[in-house]
Design a protein around this nucleic acid. Structure first.
Lengths: 203, 203, 203, 203
DNA sequence: GGATAATCGAGACGGTACGTCGCGTCTTCAT
DNA sequence: ATGAAGACGCGACGTACCGTCTCGATTATCC
């Protein structure tokens, strides 16, 4: 019997439930506008019109323009790229993941994501989710790879994992942000190699 | 004859010359607004009012809002922090410079700069200047330090210099952008150490 | 057998009957809002919330906002003020009724009623009822008084009754509408006197 | 010499002067909308769009929707109808003016004016101007006619002028407001006759 | 007594208009 | 010609209500 226990109160709202289809339609419209004209084109009015939805409905789901853009970006991109190539060595897995990131972000959409990352001022719930979705989840994935590499003897046991992660992912986003050099496969390969090698003359 | 020699062809305009003091006043006003309310508070109208200046005067100096914010930020910060500590070893010089950067950017203003870096979409002249002023100049400084270190035998001669620079500066801005971990002296020291050590188990 | 004759075909509906108490509650809420903030404050949402009622319930009883305001006003005011002072002369009765009207309408609620009178654009059923309730019923009462006065010899037999009625009630509402002069007892008395006297120099 | 005296400070504003042509264009647009769809069609957005003007420009001239409608109505109608027929007798002049009013107001526009009269809640400057423009100016004109009539011996010298004015103009607006009877020439003629005759049986 | 049906409170929905704010340009007078 | 002042056309903002709809729950009549 399940009824008497009632461990999950099921959260029965009183009024008409929100239309989840509308939410999806709105995100789709926002995404389309984003592709066509960049973040600047994603205005609340354009989104609402395009989605065939009233403006207040958009505001019922997200508090402001910013949040809609973030949600649209998130809804379009899976958090983790490919399933981590577990069969390979840690180095290969790392290289594979960084290549995937570099490739994915070297696009207008990638620039938009970076812009939103930088513009997300506050410690809002959504900003946190956004950072997690696009960056920190992959960074955590990388941490697992590093730990695997250490366990397998590919990397030294005293590697400063958090620092290495910041080095690797930081370098990729640095090139994206500054645009001073290309963001391609060759770059990623050199990046991994250098992080492994280090600079020490004593080696 | 009207001024035939004119050793400095200063381009004497016909009418009233531009008021150079106004430019400074405007930048000061923009900076004050930036400190008080972030980049969002730096509206052209607020800047003009605050500076006691007409809006067209602002537009005479900068093409748009964005440019004013960038100029205000740039006017407040010297391009290179302290004169590079040339007496020290390259490692110490690197550590010193990175500490200086981390300290300077771990502030609201630092966040604003990063926001502007990300928002500067196009390859505009001013965006280039902005990136150069705040990041690439220091990165070039870092390159000189690395080259000095290689010459001095502190670093291996086959170090991938450009990659190392992206690793180091990228890691700092990555923490700034994501806010997932602290940006302090200890971080910088670990960062430099790890970049030197590398991850290789064979060492 | 249950009710074979059914003398009153009561039209028993199938489902749950309407809650008559809700209607009263709604009107009470509308009236309260009217007093507090004027007709503009009587929004459907405010009425429903205040009455603790769903919006559709309000719409089940009245077709739109307008109708609710009218109904609220009507529910608060009896159609005829005091029982016509039949013992008095026609002149006194007339004066008494006009005084009562002037007094009752010289109030915020009176202004609201006049506003609704003017705003009631169409020949809707409810607009007709509203005009009847607040004005035409009293005008009809006045007609009876005039006829009594003629029969009693107080007024000439060739008095243009409809015109006189418009003169008298019109004058009152004119002052209310324009606000160019006070609407008090003295005014009513002068009004009645002048209507009786006329302007003719030949008298 | 005019300069040194400076009796009229000329009201030299500092910035760009307001565009009077824009004001006219806006009023023209509002008038057109009013004719086409009544007061409800005169929305700020429609007015601005129709006039080819930004919404803030409309708000620069009038504080809200209401004021625009009033201004539009006023701009379309001359305050006084025809130049008072001074050659005629006072009675004829009175009849002529009342006929003109009745004719002019027995139209959709007339209804709109009456609506606005009733809706103009506050003692705002514009509401006062509106009442003056459409009603009180003509009432004042009527007062002059009455005084002329008294001086000429057409009316008794002890006529209660203010009351008579309210009777006459009030009756016209009463019919307009209530719509219980026609508002035509015959009505006006009967109205004037009755106001002159009075009701007194003693006459 | 169980099915049927209209009502109830609640509140989300597609809309429309509100009044405000900021953009970047234009127009005025004074310097 | 440049300065300040500020109005201009434009367009997006976020809010308030409109009148309709969709829920689950409630209350009545009908079979």
């Amino acid at each position: 019997m399940k009824k008497p226990v009632k461990d999950t109160p099921v959260k029965r709202a009183r009024g008409r439930p929100r239309d989840l289809a509308a939410k999806e339609t709105i995100l789709r419209a926002a995404r389309a506008l984003l592709d066509e004209g960049g973040p600047g084109a994603v205005t609340m009015e354009a989104v609402a019109t395009r989605a065939g939805v009233g403006k207040p409905t958009v505001y019922r789901w997200w508090p402001d323009r910013h949040a809609v853009v973030m949600a649209a970006l998130m809804s379009a991109t899976p958090s983790t790229g490919s399933p981590a190539p577990s069969g390979a060595t840690a180095i290969e897995a790392l290289r594979g993941q960084l290549r995937e990131i570099a490739m994915r972000f070297a696009s207008p959409t990638g620039r938009h994501i970076t812009s939103m990352l930088a513009a997300a001022d506050a410690e809002s719930e959504l900003a946190r989710a956004f950072r997690g979705h696009f960056v920190l989840a992959r960074r955590a994935e990388g941490r697992a790879i590093l730990e695997r590499g250490i366990a397998a003897g590919e990397f030294r046991s005293d590697v400063d994992i958090e620092i290495v992660l910041d080095e690797l992912y930081g370098a990729v986003f640095f090139r994206l942000l500054l645009g001073h050099a290309s963001l391609d496969v060759a770059f990623v390969d050199r990046l991994v190699r250098q992080a492994i090698t280090g600079m020490s003359a004593s080696a």
